[in-house]
Design a protein around this nucleic acid. Structure first.
Lengths: 226, 226
DNA sequence: GAGAGATGTAAAGATTTTATAAAGAATAGG
DNA sequence: CCTATTCTTTATAAAATCTTTACATCTCTC
């Protein structure tokens, strides 16, 4: 997982320091801003993964900052406030705040809420892409491309290729491949492997007679090469 | 905007009554459950748009209920608790709770948090107007247009199409689609999928025999393509 | 370089999965 | 309470995939 960037917008130096220390200890990049103006500029220049926004800024009301942000910024914004009155909370949430914390807060709770907010906003960003020269395997969308053209694989072909590719350059034995793809009762069905390896080569190799990606290790198994 | 359905899982009759009255006044459909078992059954049969879950249920710990739910249920779950200790809050949020409210709560604040949670879970539905060539899906009005003509979809058809479209180009497995659209008790009913996919194709594809939008991945699932 | 075992390939047959229509059951709305 | 709509189930046809067979080719050893 990559480090996430958090922007802290708060005018109290003490709070900023506390937050920065806590967040950096938890493997976040932290940027600081002390005024609304400075904060909005920072967001525009380097949109962070999450914003901690103090509602009581000196130059502009935090609610207005939030409204302004929400015109284009979609990542989580967590509001910090000394207020605990209901109206304020309602207003912030209705303006699109992801969460609302009343100062003084416990850092443990803050971290949990940050994690929760980030988890929600990055659900789909776990794209696993493997690139091998002319071949691209995208596990998130379950697609294979050769020279940028989509290739159609059956479920079994895909499973087999994915297994080989994930173990790039390692030899996988016949027994292992058969067990993983077809199940343990198929461990002696080596003809299956030959048939499916041939089909895969026909689909992904430039010249199926001289395969460069799926290599035969005679008497042992197969190996995937980039 | 359509009415949203809220499921209240709480063993205290008084709280249930209060919540039901408040929510129904705000144009929600409300279902009630008094135990964890009853609640889970209700969710499985009719997945609600949001769940209010009491952490102190008589038959099962609320944290476990939450974990169980999160294996497949992705809509907001707001935790209600008499506890306000940090550990409990952290645990609930890490388990995927959308929010945490300490009893007694003000109904105004509860409503704001419900609105906020629902807004988040339907972010794309408010903003996005997805366009795929001849097809336009408008999530805010729940309407579909093909070549600028409105197309009528049933609730189930719409849910299924929206799910596919939101995950454009990704393969969604049979189990996943069935679980999300019909609930976990339907995960083996793959004939449903075939019937509804056929209906959708008849409505949105230029030539239902040669679909270009809803693609079959034999043995795996379906994929939506622009 | 001959032979044996291992591997590759094509294609027919068997099986599984998918598509579609249509009838029966359930549900919502007037 | 009735009707129209939608959902569920059943039946069957079509398509895709998997499995098996038969034979060709390769590789390694002697």
């Amino acid at each position: 997982m990559n480090k996430s960037t958090v922007l802290v917008i708060d005018d109290e130096a003490q709070i900023r320091k506390l937050l920065t220390i806590t967040l950096e200890a938890q493997e976040f990049y932290v940027h600081e801003a002390t005024t609304a103006k400075e904060g909005l500029a920072a967001v525009a220049n380097h949109p962070p993964d999450l914003i901690l926004l103090d509602i009581g800024l000196p130059d502009q009301n935090g609610h207005d900052v939030l409204k302004h942000l929400r015109e284009w910024y979609t990542n989580p914004v967590i509001i910090l406030s000394v207020q605990s009155n209901e109206e304020d909370i309602v207003r912030a949430l209705d303006n699109g705040a992801s969460d609302y914390l009343v100062k003084p807060f416990r850092t443990g709770e803050l971290m949990a809420r940050i994690r929760s907010a980030l988890r929600k906003s990055t659900v789909d960003e776990n794209h696993a892409l493997l690139t091998f020269g002319d071949l691209v395997l995208d596990f998130s969308s379950r697609t294979i491309k050769k020279n940028n053209e989509k290739i159609k694989l059956t479920a079994t072909e895909y499973t087999l290729l994915a297994l080989l590719a994930k173990n790039e350059s390692k030899v996988l034995t016949h027994h292992y491949l058969l067990t993983q793809v077809w199940g343990p009762t198929y461990r002696e069905e080596s003809q299956y492997l030959r048939v499916f390896i041939a089909q895969l080569r026909k689909k992904i190799e430039a010249d199926p007679n001289r395969p460069v990606h799926i290599i035969t290790e005679s008497g042992v198994g197969y190996r995937f090469i980039a």
